[in-house]
């Protein structure tokens, strides 16, 4: 654990503070530029039925009569105390909404993350070991095509095939209709998870497979691989005993560093499958003008992406002996 020194921690914490404060400033500026009137967005169709006094009361209660910089300072002060405000559409504190929704999304994101990681890695190693073979061609064609596939369309296709035509999987939501998330059995949850997770995984496989393929080709052309071949090791043996270990680390770090794309993918997948997670909440907050929730989710997602990059950095330093010993020698 030498790689995690005090200065490394300080630098990362400083970076996090800088990024989060910049992100919140940018997000708040964007939101206050919006021509969407929060009061109308909140009230919706009943806009005509409230009096100007009531409207004035709402504006005062939300502090909308004050100038934007002042509102920003109040909001930022509250955020520092851990209070992200009250979500308008869910009528709950933003932190509660994000917490609850994130747990639901976490199931989806974690399973897609694992599945795409493992599958992509295996495909990448197979393609890289047998470069130019039919298997390699198929895997490459698949990955390049998937890179230009809209993920929401992929979800629609899966929905049309497996839910509508074959009737194997449910059409929407995270639990059967009428069953609250707390009462749902593990099987019911998994059953509803299959298609959204498959959508995200099928798309996510492409990047990791192509990346692993490149790294495997490098490893198979390396001197240690040549030496192993000279000793009579088979191709599969070199791949399994020598290449995989060298390729695994970049693959794992890439997987951590792409948490942002995973988050974006889950927004689209949750919309297709009406999966009540954080992504669906983001879309609702954007469309119905729930400013506190939108700001909260923005901050949370920035933290999420930062954590992924941080883990990738730490993994590189801790697990890769070359970098670890390099930093030790530098000292």
């Amino acid at each position: 654990m030498h790689a995690i020194s005090a200065s490394f921690c300080m630098a990362k914490i400083g970076r996090l503070v800088l990024i989060l404060s910049l992100v919140s400033t940018l997000a708040f500026t964007l939101v206050s530029l919006s021509p969407v009137d929060p009061v109308s967005a909140y009230i919706g169709i009943d806009r005509m039925q409230i009096s100007t006094e009531q409207e004035q009361r709402i504006i005062e209660r939300w502090g909308l009569d004050r100038p934007a910089p002042e509102r920003f300072l109040i909001w930022a002060g509250n955020v520092l105390r851990g209070d992200l405000g009250q979500s308008m559409i869910f009528n709950e504190p933003v932190t509660t909404v994000i917490g609850k929704r994130f747990v639901t999304s976490l199931w989806l994101m974690a399973s897609a993350w694992l599945l795409s990681g493992v599958l992509g890695f295996v495909l990448g190693v197979v393609a890289g070991t047998n470069r130019g073979s039919p298997a390699d061609r198929v895997i490459r064609l698949y990955s390049y095509t998937l890179a230009s596939t809209p993920s929401f369309w992929m979800g629609l296709v899966l929905l049309a095939v497996f839910s509508v035509s074959l009737g194997l999987t449910p059409i929407c939501c995270a639990t059967p209709p009428g069953v609250s998330p707390d009462d749902a059995t593990l099987w019911q949850r998994l059953h509803h998870l299959i298609l959204p997770a498959a959508t995200l995984s099928l798309i996510g496989v492409a990047q990791i497979a192509l990346h692993t393929r490149e790294k495997t080709i490098d490893a198979m052309n390396s001197e240690y691989a040549l030496f192993a071949f000279a000793q009579g090791e088979s191709r599969a043996g070199v791949a399994w005993r020598h290449a995989v270990r060298n390729v695994a680390l970049p693959a794992v770090t890439l997987q951590f560093a792409s948490l942002g794309e995973l988050f974006g993918g889950s927004v689209l997948a949750e919309q297709v499958f009406s999966y009540p997670g954080l992504g669906k909440a983001t879309v609702e907050a954007g469309i119905r003008g729930d400013v506190p929730l939108l700001l909260g989710i923005t901050l949370f997602s920035a933290l999420f992406v930062f954590t992924g990059n941080l883990v990738a950095d730490i993994l590189y330093g801790v697990l890769d002996p070359r970098i670890r010993i390099g930093t030790e020698e530098a000292k």
Binding site: L22, A27, L33, V36, V267, L294, T298
Partner: peptide, 25 residues
């Protein structure tokens, strides 16, 4: 470079939603 880091700090789609909200759709 800080500006680049800032734009890449949030998931792409969240930024897209924020900006499109700022422009009023």
């Amino acid at each position: 470079t800080t500006l680049i880091d800032l734009v890449m700090a949030t998931p792409h789609l969240v930024l897209l939603i924020l900006v499109s909200f700022a422009c009023g759709g």
